[in-house]
């Protein structure tokens, strides 16, 4: 536990001073998005890495958070912080209710149900034009402000978003180490065994689904208030898939791995812009190569790579699935 705490403080300190190295250019803006996607990836990782329940519709909660926050503030002039709370609570309730029928399903049926949920929500964003503005989006969402500070610059937004991201990471690390975390891992390994040991598997799964939804909604609300514009395309099926990729590339079950995954997938396209038309090919190739050579995710793959480089040991094929 002590080691975990040290890791956390090191990470927080690194995030805190990072802007000094990132500078004032556009990169700081990219890191605002890295923060948002980190929150989202951590949320999915709790569900997928910890409890072993797949979701292909995570973008639905992200979008609901953004739209509830956005519509309340832009159309009904509700205070942004209040709207953030409303968004998070509402999505938590929705996820809790949906969780009961959805998490009864397993394997590819669960994948299908979550995918369907994502698509239905996406269509609702598109079709309820009077409320959401439809495909052309919703603009005029205000920035968040706190005691006279308006979060309207990239640097301010960086600290705002990362304050939440770091808090979520701390809570998630604690959750994973807690009794609930152990129970969830038991469900991951064998639901039947966990039930026999007296774990209320069904309720726990619904709870973690709901927590995951709440965290994603928070990210959505932050997205709405930092970008100040939202449209359905930012919350479609491809976003759900991208989040899944972040979690797996980072390392299933590793909270800090989710940060790495989010950072890599958000930064790569920025670096590949110079390849012009070839960027999509380079991106696809990179994805394949990373996964092929680090099947345990970056968080396990990178240390292994270093060890094998310096100790000249052959790189072991990682069969380890979770840590």
């Amino acid at each position: 536990m002590k080691q975990e705490l040290l890791k956390f403080f090191l990470f927080t300190a690194l995030i805190g001073i990072a802007p000094v190295f990132i500078g004032k250019g556009y990169l700081i803006n990219v890191f605002v998005f890295v923060g948002i996607y980190t929150i989202l990836a951590v949320a999915l990782n709790l569900l997928l890495g910890l409890a072993g329940q797949i979701s292909l519709g995570q973008a639905a909660f992200f979008g609901l958070g953004a739209y509830i926050s956005g519509v309340l503030t832009a159309t009904h002039a509700v205070n942004p912080w209040l709207s953030m709370v409303i968004a998070v609570v509402t999505v938590g309730i929705i996820a809790f209710i949906l969780g009961f029928p959805i998490l009864k399903l397993k394997g590819h049926y669960l994948a299908m149900a979550t995918l369907g949920m994502g698509i239905i929500v996406y269509i609702i964003f598109n079709e309820t034009v009077d409320i959401t503005g439809g495909p052309s989006g919703l603009s005029g969402i205000p920035h968040l402000s706190l005691g006279g500070i308006i979060f309207n610059s990239d640097l301010k937004n960086y600290y705002l978003v990362w304050f939440f991201a770091v808090t979520i990471i701390l809570l998630s690390v604690n959750l994973a180490a807690s009794r609930i975390g152990r129970a969830l891992r038991a469900i991951h390994d064998s639901e039947v065994a966990a039930r026999i040991m007296g774990v209320n598997a069904r309720l726990l799964k619904v709870q973690i689904f709901s927590i995951s939804g709440v965290i994603s909604a928070l990210a959505g609300s932050l997205y709405a208030h930092t970008v100040t514009f939202i449209s359905p395309t930012s919350f479609g099926f491809n976003v759900s898939i991208e989040l899944l990729t972040m979690v797996i590339i980072g390392g299933l079950g590793s909270i800090y791995g989710s940060f790495l995954g989010a950072a890599i997938l958000t930064l790569l396209p920025e670096f590949f812009r110079t390849f012009q038309d070839y960027d999509i090919i380079v991106y696809g190739l990179t994805l394949i190569v990373i996964t092929m050579f680090m099947p345990g995710g970056l968080v396990r793959g990178v240390p292994l790579l270093f060890r094998s480089l310096f100790k000249k040991e052959p790189m072991p094929q990682s069969n380890e699935k979770r840590g």
Binding site: L244, I281, Y283, L287, I288, T291, P295, N319
Partner: peptide, 22 residues
């Protein structure tokens, strides 16, 4: 990747689909 987790392989197919489309 003989013994990799199927989820890992799913990500490879996502990469493959982006590559082929590109």
């Amino acid at each position: 990747l003989k013994n990799a987790d199927p989820l890992i392989l799913v990500i490879i197919t996502i990469g493959g689909s982006i590559l082929i489309r590109g």
